[in-house]
């Protein structure tokens, strides 16, 4: 464990807490893409298959349980909770996210470390996570004004993978033959997708103005 990875995990955890706070405090999930939440639940469920087979550390297992349970809970809230589901921007959240799932499956079958059940599912989860934010970014552009907590949620979600890139660079130089080219490429694409959001987020922060994404 290095400081970059810890910072990344804490930022990721914080983004989940901010999202839970937004839904709980505002009793609303307006501005949140259910499709992105479903994709993240799928990412965690397919990546953490080893939760019950390989024990790496208490930290590792606890974080996996937290990410799986929070993502599933948010999807449940947005789909079935009588109060919350009514505030979901159903007619704005129209990204065809099953295409992202399909492309990730094809990529995972083509590019993986080893052709085993675990490795293909792991590669699938890495590719899917790289694009999982797209429905959320599209929804933000459509919904015009973005409430602070939603903006912070997306910001921290994007920042965490940037810390992971620093972690991979650090591990590349400190551990011999460490190569995670699948994670590197997908992580780079994932972080790049946030580029314009980061720009508008910085501008809104500098001008102390409401976050506005161009339509």
């Amino acid at each position: 464990m290095n400081i970059f990875r810890l910072a990344g995990d804490m930022t990721h955890l914080f983004s989940v807490l901010v999202l839970l706070l937004k839904i709980y405090a505002t009793k609303s999930c307006s501005g949140i893409s259910l499709k992105t939440q479903e994709l993240y639940a799928l990412v965690f469920l397919t990546r953490y298959l080893d939760l019950f087979t390989d024990f790496i550390s208490v930290y590792n297992s606890v974080m996996k349980v937290v990410f799986i349970s929070s993502s599933v809970a948010i999807v449940w809230c947005m789909r079935y909770h009588p109060l919350t589901r009514r505030t979901y921007d159903k007619d704005l959240d129209t990204f065809r996210h099953y295409i992202l799932v399909g492309v990730s499956i094809i990529l995972a079958l083509l590019f993986h470390d080893r052709f085993t059940f675990r490795e293909v599912f792991w590669a699938f989860s890495i590719y899917l996570e790289a694009v999982a934010i797209l429905p959320q970014l599209v929804l933000l552009q459509r919904s015009g004004n973005v409430d602070n907590l939603t903006g912070q949620y997306v910001f921290f979600l994007g920042a965490y993978r940037a810390f992971y890139i620093l972690n991979w660079i650090y591990r590349y130089f400190t551990e011999n033959h460490y190569s995670r080219w699948i994670s590197w490429l997908a992580g780079f694409v994932q972080t790049a997708l946030y580029a314009d959001f980061f720009y508008y987020y910085f501008v809104s922060w500098k001008n102390n103005a409401k976050l506005q994404l161009p339509a």
Binding site: D9, D50, N60, F67, D113, E119, S179, W181, I182, S183
Partner: peptide, 10 residues
């Protein structure tokens, strides 16, 4: 290669 390393990252 990366395949023989456990996936110790989240």
């Amino acid at each position: 290669s990366s395949s023989d390393q456990p996936k110790d990252e989240l």
